[in-house]
Design a protein around this nucleic acid. Structure first.
Length: 216
DNA sequence: ACCCAGGGTCATA
DNA sequence: TATGACCATGGG
C-alpha cells in the first residue's frame, strides 16, 4: 500500500478534521506543549483554566508565579514540568517579538530555535511549525510511527528525522503540502480516537500500543 | 485495578 | 547510542 492510499482511506473514513483545535497560533503552541504524552481531553481543561485566569498570553504567563501556573495546569498532568516548559516557550516568544515577527523567519531557523528551548522536542516543534506557523512539515507522533509500521510502510526504528524526511519525500507531489500534512496528521489522531472500543481487545482497528490488529 | 494518552529530559553503561 | 526512570492527571 502506498502512503497516499493510507491518506485517502483515512479521509474517506473520518472526513475533514479542520485542525488544530485552538483559536490562535499562540493557543496552538500552548496546546502542543500541554498535550505531550497526554490525552487532549485533559489539555482542554488546563487551557480552560488558563483562559479563565486570562493567562492565554505569553507575557502574562511569564509574569505568573511558577506555583500558580503549575496549579492551573494540574488537569493536563506533569504540571510542574509543563509549567517550566511553557514558561521557556513564552520567554522566547516574547523576546523574539511575538507571532508576526517570528512569522518572517524561514522554517529551518524557526525549527532550530524551537528545538533549542527546554522541553520542545522534534514532535512539539513540528506541531508548532505546521499548525501555528503553517509550514509544510510532516509531524511524526507515536500513532504515526505505529500505524506506518503495522502497515509495513516503515521498519519502525528510524530516527524521527529520517522518518519525517522519508514521509515528506513520498508525499511531495501536489501544490498544497501544508494542507495535506495538516489533514494527514489530524486524520491519524482521529483514527486513534474514534475507533477501537472497548480496549484492549478491539475488533476493528486500533492504534493503541497493545492492540493486536490494525486495519485502515 | 489496569491500561492508556497527540513527549522530552536526564542519568547511566 | 541505547535503554530506563521520571514526570501526573483523568477517562475507558
Amino acid at each position: 500500500m502506498q502512503i497516499t492510499a493510507v491518506y485517502r482511506k483515512l479521509y474517506r473514513q473520518h472526513g475533514p478534521q479542520h485542525w488544530w483545535p485552538g483559536e490562535t497560533p499562540f493557543e496552538v503552541m500552548v496546546g502542543a506543549v500541554l498535550t505531550q504524552n497526554t490525552a487532549w481531553s485533559n489539555v482542554e481543561k488546563a487551557i480552560a483554566n488558563l483562559r479563565a485566569a486570562r493567562l492565554l498570553d505569553a507575557a502574562a504567563i511569564i509574569r505568573t508565579r511558577p506555583a500558580r501556573l503549575a496549579k492551573l495546569l494540574t488537569p493536563s498532568g506533569y504540571f510542574n514540568v509543563k509549567a517550566r516548559r511553557l514558561r521557556s516557550l513564552c520567554a522566547w516568544y516574547v523576546e523574539q517579538g511575538g507571532f508576526d515577527a517570528l512569522s518572517q523567519r524561514d522554517t529551518s531557523r524557526l525549527r532550530s530555535e524551537l528545538l533549542a528551548l527546554h522541553g520542545i522536542g522534534p514532535e512539539t516543534a513540528d506541531d508548532i511549525l505546521l499548525y501555528a506557523f503553517e509550514r509544510p512539515v510532516f509531524v511524526i507522533d507515536a500513532y504515526t510511527r505505529r500505524l506506518f509500521k503495522r502497515l509495513g510502510l516503515i521498519a519502525g526504528d528510524e530516527t524521527y528525522e529520517a522518518l519525517r524526511a522519508g514521509v515528506e519525500r513520498r508525499l511531495a507531489r501536489g501544490d498544497d503540502r501544508i494542507a495535506l500534512f495538516n489533514e494527514f496528521h489530524a486524520l491519524i489522531v482521529a483514527h486513534a480516537k474514534n475507533i477501537c472500543r472497548p480496549r484492549p481487545r478491539c475488533e476493528v482497528c486500533c492504534l493503541a500500543r497493545t492492540c493486536p490488529a490494525t486495519v485502515v
